[in-house]
Amino acid sequence: MSQQRRLTGPKKYVAVVLAVLFILLIWQAAAWSLPDFLMPGIPTVLERMQAAVQEAQFREGLLGSMSRLGSGYSFALLFGIGFGLVGGVLFFFREILRSAIVILQSIPSIAWVPLFLIVMGFGNLPIIVVVALAAFFPMALSVMNATESVQPVHVSAARVMGASRWQLLRRVYLPAVMPELITGAQLAFGNAWRALISAEMLIGFGQGLGRSLAYSGEIADMTGVMMNILVIAILATLIDQVVLEKFKQRVLRYQYV
């Protein structure tokens, strides 16, 4: 596991910086070649962002978005891991769960919005449920697949040492599936984030990121649109690449030594 399969250290950072520069370059090139009211340049948008961050309303909206994301995502993690582990061990249940997920996953999570809106009413709840649903499927699937392929000798060894069923789950299955669990969590985060922004744009509840983006579009405020997009990209990258990556390196420390 210590093979040099992945880039580490400074090289990796250089690659990331280059990618960011490349995206910014395309943006700025578009800004130069289009009129300002269609495509604002980077400096204009950054200025707007600085101003927005100081507005209480924008910060509250942001907080609202993050709490909806947090509730929906943690719900999905909890249930995804639970169902995935149980599904991996009980194989009849596994087939039911897998078939159900395959069917349900084919429905874009945003398609549930009209239904949830009517059943649950206008508010936080339908957005949270859509986020949870979007994140649950990849989470449960990856944990379940990983649980299925846990090495039998690892399970037998624990049984020989007298492990109970609960200890087997907690001390063998869970750590054994941890690498796939984290990959699944990252995948689930991507889904959750996309579902959050689209649901907020569609439902228009609260002053969250999605709502703020949709509103800027409605009043043709392109600087506002680009600013919201930029915030969405920065936040997602920070959560995924910094928080989840750090968590991964910490939990999977044994793979990195």
Binding site: V153, H154, S156, A157, V160, M161, G162, P175, A176, Y254
Partner: peptide, 16 residues
């Protein structure tokens, strides 16, 4: 636990 087995294959836990 009074009857324990040392396995033919590697049965140590790689994460511990």
């Amino acid at each position: 636990p009074s009857r324990t087995l040392v396995f033919q294959e590697h049965a140590l836990y790689p994460w511990l």
